[in-house]
Design a protein around this nucleic acid. Structure first.
Lengths: 346, 346
DNA sequence: TTGTACGCGTTATCAA
DNA sequence: TTGATAACGCGTACAA
């Protein structure tokens, strides 16, 4: 019979088993402190009968562990993020951690408030899956938070560039765009347009610079008029396509900042009568599942999102469980996925 | 100066402000208990200086509120779920609640364990976004959990059929498939195949029965050989397409259990030289974003996922914040989205 | 208007 | 081998 009429606590178990709460605590936690097998059995019986589970809030309070891992994503509907989240969840789940998701839409205030909540909730770790946001106010605020968070013992990991003193995983943004641009060179393309991401995202600029680097290395001049702005979304890709229509005569290929953009671009282009890759070649970054089944299937750079998520999870657990920081383990291998959206000009 | 060298507690604030922790607590919680404006200012100054935030674990322990809302999804990479999650998060975030996600892949053990963790973590509410799983063991276990959870004061909401004594939102599965099937009748189709979802999901059978009902009402006989099994995924749709190829001569249209299936089906069909809708018509359920840009754009039933998510969020907040159960508010309006994947036979 | 003391459910320290 | 008791950080009845 429960003392409290709704929640079963350690007291109820102790009472039922006829022992002290200390003893109950010992069997719960498999303590090294000896407990006679007879009492142990007695306690276990009581636990089973009452369906008792220790209140993790209380455990967290005394152990200074919340079991909360904050995961900040820019857009959970973008497979880029959901695949990563899936990977993280898969491993943290095994270790009884709580994944606390925040969907920020790259809004600096929401992102900031999310971090603030995570701080109040004593998050043991935070993962910034979407990279840094470029904004002075954000920058200043986030620095303060990170300092306080670290002081609290919170472990912070970021994917994509995050220019603070935290564990930052280089997902190879720059390399990705450079690689795919060079691939286009090898297929004989030289007049290559680029569709960017949103200006507020640091990732946007990293990827953009990879494209420019490739141009430079090849001795080609960078043309401002070949740059069209996007926002990492399918809709953004469509809009970019409309702008591209005017310049289609000069351009033979277009590199997009991410797959969603490429998909939207191709869709709108097609609906305007331009054929891919016959009239213009298109490539993306990410290799999200949809790219495989696009029309035509998209040539892109594979970013192993799900695996990355798992690696982040492992990295988190290693730190949180054993206080060991894994550094070498996270090495993101990007790869070129050659499909049907590029025409060979040679 | 902090007493504890890493975490700032209410004690630190009290000390700095030269008052008792009670007073600090009062200003934090905007208590009705009077506090002189002078001390209030003093305390606020100290709070600001120390960047103090109350530890929500401790608050939760004493208030018996964890601020945790568990959200169980079958596949976070399926837009069907991520859109809903986005909606839920948007409203719960405003009220300082924590969204705790579990991705179960419809695995009964994972689903069960997720519920178990949520129980230990004193979740204030749980949302089953993916509907009931059909399995005797699962069924028996989940009933026990639900009972205990309710005893703990946990509020439970389910989307799609959930045959337990909890708040269940009828998303109109049966109506959806019936409606779309009748739409096909109106376009002159009578030999209509059906691609199911995974057998373990209750949703699968609800949707299936809508198709059968439509047939019955129309006076058409149900043919077992027109049924192909799928699993709610793109890949499952592709496999179904392969099976469909043999029977394509008799069939003029196919209803699929969800959009992902329809998309996969169309893709594979196309790659096997069958044109949609010229050779066969295809329809889906869900109206996930991708359907709009498929080739051809998919005719489907709109399930307002994001809005549903927000409604669930509001429902949750109403109950958790004011202990009011909103019943009428959640009324999911499905709608036929007519696009290009159906041929008019009349 | 302010502060003391207790309790939330748990674990750790110490004594028995 | 077992059990009081303090402590984690906070809110609140009660006292002052």
């Amino acid at each position: 019979m429960a003392i409290n009429n709704n929640k079963i606590s350690i007291k109820d178990v102790a009472k039922l088993a006829g022992v002290s709460i200390t003893t109950v605590s010992r069997v719960i936690n498999n303590s090294k402190h000896p407990v006679s097998s007879k009492t142990r059995v007695e306690v276990q019986k009581a636990i089973k009968e009452l369906n008792f589970q220790p209140n993790r809030l209380a455990q967290g309070l005394i152990n200074n562990k919340s079991s909360i891992i904050g995961v900040i994503v820019h857009d959970i509907s973008d497979t880029y993020f959901s695949e990563m989240v899936k990977g993280i969840e898969e491993v943290t789940f095994e270790n009884d951690y709580i994944i606390n998701i925040y969907n920020t839409d790259r809004d600096i205030h929401k992102e900031l408030q999310a971090v603030n909540m995570l701080k109040a909730n004593q998050a043991e770790a935070i993962v910034f899956t979407g990279g840094h946001l470029i904004d002075d106010f954000y920058d200043q605020q986030i620095r303060g938070y990170i300092k306080q968070l670290k002081q609290q013992g919170c472990y912070i990991i970021s994917v994509n560039p995050y220019p603070y003193d935290i564990r930052d995983i280089d997902i190879g943004n720059k390399l990705a765009t450079r690689t795919i641009t060079e691939y286009l060179f090898n297929k004989g393309h030289e007049n290559i347009a680029y569709v960017t991401g949103p200006a507020i995202s640091h990732t946007t600029w990293e990827r953009f610079s990879g494209y420019k680097d490739a141009l430079k290395n090849k001795g080609l001049i960078f043309r401002e008029e070949y740059v069209i702005s996007g926002d990492f979304t399918f809709e953004g890709g469509r809009k970019a396509a409309l702008e591209l229509l005017n310049r289609i005569s000069d351009i033979t290929a277009v590199v997009t900042a991410n797959d969603a953009t490429a998909l939207g671009l191709m869709w709108e282009l097609k609906h305007n009568g331009v054929n891919i890759p016959e009239d213009v070649s298109v490539v993306g970054i990410g290799n999200i599942p949809e790219t495989k089944y696009a029309y035509p299937p998209l040539t892109t750079i594979a970013l192993p999102l799900f695996e990355l998520g798992k690696k982040i999870g492992n990295c988190l657990m290693s730190k949180l469980l054993n206080n060991k920081v894994i550094l070498e383990d996270i090495d993101v291998k990007i790869g070129l996925i050659e499909r049907k959206s590029v025409k060979n000009l040679l």
